[in-house]
Design a binder for these strands. Structure first.
Lengths: 219, 219
DNA sequence: CGGTGCCTCCACCCCGGGGTGGAGGCACCG
DNA sequence: CGGTGCCTCCACCCCGGGGTGGAGGCACCG
């Protein structure tokens, strides 16, 4: 990486825009090449200046930040986008990340955080607000271990009986119904349920059903 | 947060273990209450000391870090886990995060990074290595909630919001978590849940998860 | 022989999930 | 204009699910 990291700042609030511009101008190795007050201007600025990084507000008039991010990523994939916004609700976060943002900062980030995000993103890494990271974890897609051994032995050391109970859970049976189905007491069912929860690391039967589907124990 | 953040350090290599212990002992507001040389010891230490944070190596004898993390999260959900490992391959990362780790550091992290991760995780946030963040982004689920109108209309006359709630149920979230995720009250979530149960004809969330998987609203 | 793992069952506790019966705001539409 | 559907939120109730801490029988095996 030679030469400064070239940045475009897009925010509809002038104070914010100029504050960030100033902040970054005092940062070593970073240069603000343009600013934009709405999404359309941001896209145009990217086309004209081919920056390394775009600092993008989400709430802007005329083509909001998400749409602008999507356009930037589609037409100028070399330019990375860091979202800088007051809001961190799931809708915004997912939409922005899906549009291709590699960074996500909230507006109480300090100069240091902003500079770090710009550098990391320019270096091909990601830099997300800690709360956003946590949300991502919650949305973690199923961990499919390896589809190698499909109908092989039970995963996570489940016993035969536990797999049986798990399948019935996935089939939508209550503990009482499972007990009737297996001709054992409900207490026994609850024991198996507790054991298989512990082994698979799930919290409740909803998660257990998802686990069963992902591991081919239901369907 | 009053009192120091109480930490357990688990690593089978003595140099690493004691190095981190020293490093953290010099950090304001952090106290190492125990160390562990393998997974079993780590789990036992958590049970005995009820720490705020566990720094967990992944490669350890007798119950590896992933299993230990899972146990800690199951049995002592108050204690958060930060993984500290040399490896950042996808399998390890996914397994660890799935087991419930809230932090992920590689071993070339400095004292500052380690301290920051401990603090953030203790505060209920997440702190993942930037490369891990990038991997997570690549794994981002296909933003199911509101995909404009791609995969056909919702089955059984489900509204957009109901489909959204159903997807989150299938992702294993509780009503409280769904409420937080959608930024609405829990009462609203319960209303949607009741409506979608009635429309789809399921009885509880276990059956709802199965329904979601069968109708391609999860997975 | 003793140890281990699995299956079986018990009592007890508590909270979250699921159900009922409301309500208001808003957008859309005939 | 009034009706309808959706989203939002409330209070209240109750039961099943999930967790704890036991226990005994049995098969297998070193």
């Amino acid at each position: 990486m030679d030469g400064p990291i070239r940045v475009v700042v897009a925010d509809d609030q002038r104070v914010v825009r100029e504050g960030i511009e100033l902040m970054l101008s005092l940062t070593d190795g970073v240069e603000v090449v343009a600013t934009a007050a709405d999404g359309e201007q941001a896209v145009a600025a990217v086309a004209r200046y081919d920056p390394d990084v775009v600092l993008m507000d989400l709430r802007m008039p005329r083509c909001d930040g998400v749409a602008a991010t999507r356009l930037v990523r589609r037409d100028h994939p070399r330019s990375q986008v860091v979202v800088l916004t007051t809001f961190a609700d799931d809708e915004s976060v997912l939409a922005a990340l899906h549009a291709g943002a590699r960074g996500y900062l909230t507006k109480d980030a300090g100069a240091e955080e902003v500079a770090r995000a710009v550098r990391r993103v320019a270096a091909g890494q990601a830099d997300l607000d800690p709360d956003v990271q946590r949300r991502l974890l919650e949305l973690l897609p199923a961990h499919r271990p390896v589809p190698s051994a499909p109908a092989g032995p039970a995963p996570d050391g489940l016993t035969e009986r536990e797999v049986e109970v798990l399948s019935l859970i996935a089939a939508g049976l209550s503990n009482t119904e499972i007990a009737q189905s297996l001709v054992v007491s409900e207490a026994t069912v609850k024991t198996h349920v507790n054991h298989l929860f512990a082994k698979t690391g799930v919290r409740d039967r909803a998660q257990a059903v998802a686990y069963a589907y992902r591991h081919g124990l239901a369907g």
